[in-house]
Amino acid sequence: MRAVSADELAPSTEAWPVQATGLRVKAGSRLAVDGLDLTLGPGVHGLLGPNGAGKTTLMRALATVVRPEDGRLRLLGRDVRQRKTLRTLRSRLGYLPQQFGFYPKFTVRDYVEYMAWLREVPTTAVPAATQRAIDRVGLTGRADSRLRSLSGGMLRRAGIAQAIVNEPELLLLDEPTVGLDPGQRVEFRELLRDLGDGSCVLVSTHLVEDVVAACTNVLLLDEGRLVFRGLPGELARLGASDGVGDSAAERGYSVLLREHRSAA
């Protein structure tokens, strides 16, 4: 006989990996996310928005790097303000920041291993998890090259590898397709679909076609608020006859932004 802790009885999978109500997050002295209500289920969610819409600040808050100013934020069923559960919560997150800094002297393997250790992957599982993450982003041949010798696109992929090394249940990718060539972007979309199979993936980007091609869900953020939420197809439908842009989805995006701004 033994005592069962409340933690063990808590449901292991949450209906909503991300649950935010009235979320306010500051970037410097400005409220970049201002009263955001958001629930995200499993799947790949594309986060669109113009520059300065608060995408990166929202990502930082979801990655638990920045503490929200106000409002409620529950990730994987845990409140981010709860200090006791923050550590276990963080070991289930994966995050690729927009300004992805790295140690130039590390090799890809060093870097991914170091991040796996920081994310508390069990010590014995670190080498295999590292190899798997590197293989998944297609850097197998360059695993032992130093980071400073890699091109921009390869660096991004190394960044994605470190974010998925712990098989996160909530994966946050901030501008992951910057610097990838067209072929790599197609491969990356496939990886995204694969990742979104069991976990919740939030991809922030300003490339509308990435969202349409790889996401199950589109979110549009403007001035710190959620403006639109729907399927990629809806975006294309909105842009079928109106708006500016090269593709239907891009036109739909511009229509939505214009409507929101004229209403405000």
Binding site: V65, R90, S91, G101, F102, Y103, L118, E120, Q162
Partner: peptide, 18 residues
């Protein structure tokens, strides 16, 4: 001075331990 601070600061071990 730490280029990877943002990636590191959201991880489980970041904090007083590191």
């Amino acid at each position: 001075s730490d280029p990877a601070w943002e990636t590191v600061s959201g991880t489980a071990r970041a904090g007083l331990e590191l």
